[in-house]
Simulated scan of single mutants.
Amino acid sequence: MRALLVVNPVATTTSARTRDVLAHALASDLKLEVAATEYRGHARELARRAAEQGTTDLVIALGGDGTVNEVVNGLLHHGPDGGRLPSLAVVPGGSTNVFARALGLPNDAVEATGALLGALRDDSSREIGLGLVTGTPGSADAEIPARWFTFCAGFGFDAGVIGRVESHRERGKRSTHSLYVRQAVRHFTDDRQQRHRGTISLLRDGQAPVDGLVLTIVCNTAPWTFFGNRPIYAAPRASFDTGLDLTAVTRLSSAALARFTTQLLSSSPERGMSGKHVVSLHDETSFTLQSQAPQPFQLDGDHLGLRTSVSFTGVRRALRVIV
């Protein structure tokens, strides 16, 4: 089997020596080519080239969720291809590794490599659904290129927190859970205008709009994220085997934020966020989030700037993953 290993050399939790050991282990079972990313978007280019050339059977992403997202978008640059695309495998090397852990992989890179080799020998894989985001026709963001996501997207408060975290990382701060908590508190303190009623509307064909949303989280699987080793379930029923789930909030006062935070920290596969200010959708094929004012937007933990409108589609059986 011919495989391409796409390595993020600055992955948070994997040293250069460990990456060399993992590549050597993979090369014992595969005809392996190794490519290190050199800039943002490089992993996408490498995966796209592998898909277009048609000689690669497997693309392995060694890095965090951002690296995985780029590889997925490269593989699906021309869309799903009826099983003729290279399969995807993941070796976690980031700080959180939500996608890999949602697939049931070990969070340790060495253990995950062993699991991957075992899955290859057993010919074990699954087809998973993914989320696709496009600009909304007639909106200011209509021409923005389509982009796939593996586990979550956020429009509004959630994305604003991620944007703050990324700005600190660009200044040399490490991505830690405490950094996210501090930036969430600061974003809440600074964003007073939208605490009681937001500017985001949920639009679905044949349904009345839902207005006044402050926080919107779109999930393609559960858990939504991890707080250390604790899984957080914003949308407990979300699955790689269904459409998209949405959890949204229409009020974010101090009391509401404390209540929702408590619910998330105690969430489980059976229980997520609830209450009269929570809007929940399960297994949706398509919908649009639209705002009167530009809102921060993120996919798979990657802040993508401000948008006024984004349209979501759940695409089933979009990609084969080795697990």
Rank of each mutant, 00 (worst) to 15 (best):
R2W: 01
P92R: 01
T67N: 05
P92K: 06
S125I: 03
L75S: 06
L244E: 00
F227D: 07
E143C: 05
A43L: 04
A184E: 06
V279L: 15
A258E: 08
E284L: 09
V181R: 06
A153I: 03
H196C: 02
K276P: 14
R271C: 14
R49W: 14
D108H: 07
Q290L: 02
T55G: 09
L244N: 05
A61P: 04
H77L: 05
G74H: 10
V321T: 06
S201R: 13
P86E: 11
L85C: 07
V110I: 13
H277S: 09
S311A: 14
K276L: 12
D108L: 01
L32G: 14
S254E: 01
F157W: 07
R17H: 08
A102H: 04
H24V: 08
Q207P: 02
G160F: 15
R49C: 12
S87D: 10
M273G: 07
G301N: 02
R271M: 15
R49N: 14
L244Q: 04
T261C: 13
T189V: 15
R19C: 12
D81H: 08
T113L: 04
S15K: 09
V110M: 10
V68E: 11
R48M: 11
D191H: 09
S239L: 02
G66N: 09
V59C: 06
A11V: 00
D123W: 06
T113C: 15
H282A: 14
P80N: 04
A47V: 13
T221C: 06
R169V: 15
L62Q: 04
Q263K: 07
L132P: 08
E45R: 15
R316D: 00
S239D: 01
V34F: 10
G79P: 11
D29T: 13
A184S: 14
G138H: 05
D241G: 05
L257Y: 11
G82P: 04
L62W: 01
F226C: 07
T221Q: 06
R259E: 15
D158H: 08
I217Q: 12
I128N: 00
H303T: 02
G206T: 03
A16S: 08
L4N: 08
G63H: 01
R237F: 01
R237D: 11
A293P: 00
E284C: 12
T242D: 10
A23P: 04
P80V: 10
S291W: 02
L252I: 05
I217R: 08
C219I: 03
A184F: 04
G154Y: 10
P209Y: 09
G74F: 09
V315L: 12
V59R: 02
A109R: 06
S266P: 00
V6M: 05
E127W: 11
G272W: 03
P86K: 07
F99P: 00
N69S: 13
G104Q: 07
E33N: 09
E38M: 13
T261Q: 10
R237S: 10
L244D: 02
V210T: 15
A47G: 03
G64Y: 03
S124L: 12
A100E: 11
T150P: 01
T12R: 14
H77S: 13
G156I: 09
L246Q: 03
T313S: 14
R271K: 15
D191A: 14
E45H: 12
F312A: 00
L213C: 05
P80S: 14
A3F: 07
F297K: 07
T13P: 04
L116A: 08
